[in-house]
Design a protein around this nucleic acid. Structure first.
Lengths: 225, 225
DNA sequence: CGCTAAATCTTTCTCCCGTAAAGATTGTTC
DNA sequence: GAACAATCTTTACGGGAGAAAGATTTAGCG
């Protein structure tokens, strides 16, 4: 019945077989008792990992609650005990995407040169989008419009934008927010155009992604016209 | 089996095309018979108009072949005689979106001041996205990645980008393409952030849309840091 | 240890979707 | 007017979202 196992995503404690020949042995796996071991191990994280895997294989449009559940090795109705709806699951996936973006941006905060900091933020942003295009689409898709329904998503999104604002304000204390919006819009639009393939086949040679992001941001900082 | 069904189909849709001036009415029950051709004039354009209407009411995610067909007053299978699939219909809707963008950009080609021309292009672009957010999402959604399957969509998209390149090249003949990509990315990202509501509730006062687009483009042209 | 209640997971069901296939209807052409 | 092609409808099938109810495990408590 439950022979199917997720290929390479789950590494948590698997549910023990139905029969327990040995007496009750307290599992010592962590110094603190995990507050979440239940039937499946914890299915919630497994579902999120499975959703990431499905995004990689099937793309953002082909993601399905049933497919995610199957990838996690549970029935198609099991996710409803951990997420209110498919959108709720996807919003959590998007939130994790923002958290990964924040983690990728974190090293730039140690740079003292504000200009170089902004340039590297641009590179990281566009690289992140290209590395995980489906998640990127999810992060900024229609779910973000409903961020009031998903407070965790909203908080993560605002935190990531806050890092851009901080860098821009360091470079231009007077009009930092505007500069942040300029840089963010530029990188966001470039990311979208890149991952949507809008720039392919346009008889236009393009430098590598990171270099392109840096070049355009440099030109925006120095003035392009 | 009910072979002859009374024409109880609703006509709530805004159908303006009437290629047949004298449609013979098989039966007259209303004092004012709407000139609806028995075999539905040309359904193709009606479906495209209906799709636009559905986009307005239900949003980009809630668009459905059945809903479009219902809005056009035909059965849910009728569209298959004019479009190969739902994606084919949506690609045509996206193509019309690009054509509308091209039409909106057309007046800017008469400007002789290249800088002002680029600034107005920015305004038009972002205004267009805000005025038709669902169509905008469709135009640059996953369908654009498959533009090889929809040559008309690809041509319209390239034409619109060509207008930006032309304006940027007029301002900077040496690095016009790069400048066009900078301006396009900036406006594209700003449009996305605006219509996705990413900038709402961020404790950040924003000027009106068109002014914001102009300000950011000006700063990119003049240098921001 | 046994019992009860709550949480988790599965099965089943309904409704809606895209779309293929076949039947019905209309316009066209000889 | 009859055959034909185009158009539209009906019916059907597979699949997905989600609700409802049953089954199973775990926790809580005596």
């Amino acid at each position: 019945m439950k022979a199917a196992k997720s290929p390479a995503t789950v590494e948590k404690t698997a549910a023990q077989p139905a029969k327990k020949p040995a007496p009750k042995t307290p599992r010592k796996r962590a110094p603190v008792p995990p507050p979440k071991p239940y039937h499946h191990g914890n299915l919630r994280d497994s579902l999120l990992d499975a959703a990431d895997a499905v995004l990689l294989t099937h793309g953002a449009s082909g993601i399905t609650l049933r497919e995610v559940a199957k990838a996690a090795g549970v029935s198609h109705a099991a996710p409803y005990h951990h997420f209110a709806s498919l959108d709720d699951l996807l919003a959590t996936v998007a939130e994790r995407g923002f958290q990964r973006l924040i983690a990728a941006l974190e090293p730039t905060t140690r740079l003292t040169n504000s200009r170089e900091r902004l340039l590297q933020i641009s590179e990281v942003y566009v690289n992140c989008a290209r590395a995980h295009p489906s998640q990127f689409r999810l992060m900024f898709g229609p779910l973000l419009s409903r961020k009031r329904e998903f407070p965790a998503l909203q908080i993560a999104a605002e935190r990531s934008f806050g890092m851009v604002v901080a860098a821009a304000t360091a470079l231009d204390p007077r009009r930092g927010t505007e500069l942040a919006l300029l840089g963010w819009s530029l990188c966001h639009g470039l990311s979208h155009l890149l991952i949507d393939g809008a720039l392919e086949g346009m008889s236009m040679p393009l430098p590598p992604t990171a270099l392109l992001a840096r070049q355009l941001t440099e030109r925006a900082l120095d003035g392009g016209g």
